[in-house]
Design a protein around this nucleic acid. Sequence first.
DNA 1: CTGTTAGCGCCTTCAC
DNA 2: GTGAAGGCGCTAACAG
Lengths: 324, 324
Amino acid sequence: MAVTIKNIADACNVSRGTVDRALNNRGKINPEKKELILAKAKELGYKPNYIARSLKRGKTNTIGIIVFNLYNEFFSSLINSMEEKAKEKDYHIDLALTHYDKNTEKKCVESMIRRQVDGLILCSVNNEKDYSSWLQKFNIPVVSLANKISNKIPYISIDDRRAMKDAAQYVADKGYDRIIYISPPLAYEDTHNIYALKQRFEGFSQVNMEHESIIINSKDYIKELETINILEYKTAILCTSDIYALEVLNYLKEKKIKIPSQVGVMGFDNINMLKYIEPHLTTVSYPIEQIGAIAIDSISQAIENGNKIQNMVITHEIIIGESL
Amino acid sequence: MAVTIKNIADACNVSRGTVDRALNNRGKINPEKKELILAKAKELGYKPNYIARSLKRGKTNTIGIIVFNLYNEFFSSLINSMEEKAKEKDYHIDLALTHYDKNTEKKCVESMIRRQVDGLILCSVNNEKDYSSWLQKFNIPVVSLANKISNKIPYISIDDRRAMKDAAQYVADKGYDRIIYISPPLAYEDTHNIYALKQRFEGFSQVNMEHESIIINSKDYIKELETINILEYKTAILCTSDIYALEVLNYLKEKKIKIPSQVGVMGFDNINMLKYIEPHLTTVSYPIEQIGAIAIDSISQAIENGNKIQNMVITHEIIIGESL
DNA sequence: CTGTTAGCGCCTTCAC
DNA sequence: GTGAAGGCGCTAACAG
């Protein structure tokens, strides 16, 4: 059994209240007694029970974080930055992964609620109409990242529409006259919230190319690519995630198609591992670590001061590589 | 304020005990009442408060996981597999990152203890002599991964010594007659626990090469490489982590040194992103996801049945690429 | 300055 | 089959 305040109180022949005062510098206390108590606490290896403290205070100092998975470096970078910022603000993070499943996501939220997290940061795929009201019912601050839930839930992100428009325009300016646009999640509109990807698609659609674009929204996008004569026209393959672009690069290398002389490739996210990839991938930076830090900052303020969290748009940037 | 058992009891004109029986299928209860209570609970949106439950039960159903960071995909894969397994076993994971700092590590452990985690999974760098006794004092199951703490703390891993010996032997068998061995952490022996890397170094040392090996233990290993005539002899660069190998590949490409015809490169860990790297890196597989799942399995059994956790050695494998 | 006490929400006897 | 009550460990309000 762990050492409790009561154990210390008994050992020092004082009351639990006095021990509490000594340990937490509360109110007036006889300095000698205080020293004795602190010494005893150390001797016994006392560690306060935060579960009990949380129950009493109604605050766990924990922020629940729900993301898809950690296979995409995008999310591990996000968690990394949040953990660091949270530690700095004396918060703990509670992590759960949804693997893109909306029911898993709801279960994760409920689990967080039962564990009384003080706030929730969410990368959501849930597309249910009343999802944001469902979330608000729990009466804790919620922030969404990577995918907007609704106007009722604060959302911190880049301007996805503008970013993809910029990307497509960059492709056009480079002299390409056809784009193959790869965005598998677009096929999941009925079952998933794909807000950000729809935004990107809209942005992409605003740029006119000489030849009609080809949209690939299949999970087997490489298989789909095989059915297309890639070398027709001056073609660029524009991907909505670096991960897709990396798979595409692998495919093109296998087919001995030269990048960028025969076909251009562009990604999205600018994940760290790109520095090891050849040719250097042209992509769009998504400052996810910065966004993670901001999210923790905002939510901790919302928790502590009741501040309303504002939507925020962080600037993106075209990262020029050698794949286009 | 959240809905409690008492609220439901009042709303249904029954006692809290009865509500508890209804919600948790305990003991005998009038079926009609049970239905009424369940309906009311749903209507009010009751979510049990696990903080209170944990306090009462003395069990949080939470496993604390402490790793270095998530920048190396090795660790994000580990967390991914653990989260999945933990969820399956109805455990929650509590994540903290140490960034290779032993004081941060101790603080993380203490924080976990205060939060009453039921068990602790630890990738440790702490080299203090009494560290394992310090850990044992908390009286919860502890498992170490990636780095052994002492014989007192169960350790699940590959046989690092044997694995690196196999790697070096593979290099020798490939006809190389000199090895440049890159293992920056070896310089930190005084301040960090580097058990696994010492093991690897021992294994490496057991293989004789025709020409004397060069050991690089500097953080600036690329700078160090620049001072060496790499093209002398038939040289292979053997790295203790894929991450180092990727940096080395970048350096060699920049210097227009051909791999593997002019120099061979070998990594360690076999992280997933290697599939996007060219040339395919020859490396040693470290089945970290399997180890993560085993760790969760063992520790949950230790928590529930008091089983003692056994050390375990998982088999490694040479992964043959095109870089050697 | 210090001791007592009630209560956070849940669970578990014990009595009826 | 049901209600009452105590307690997990900590905190805060209230006496003294």
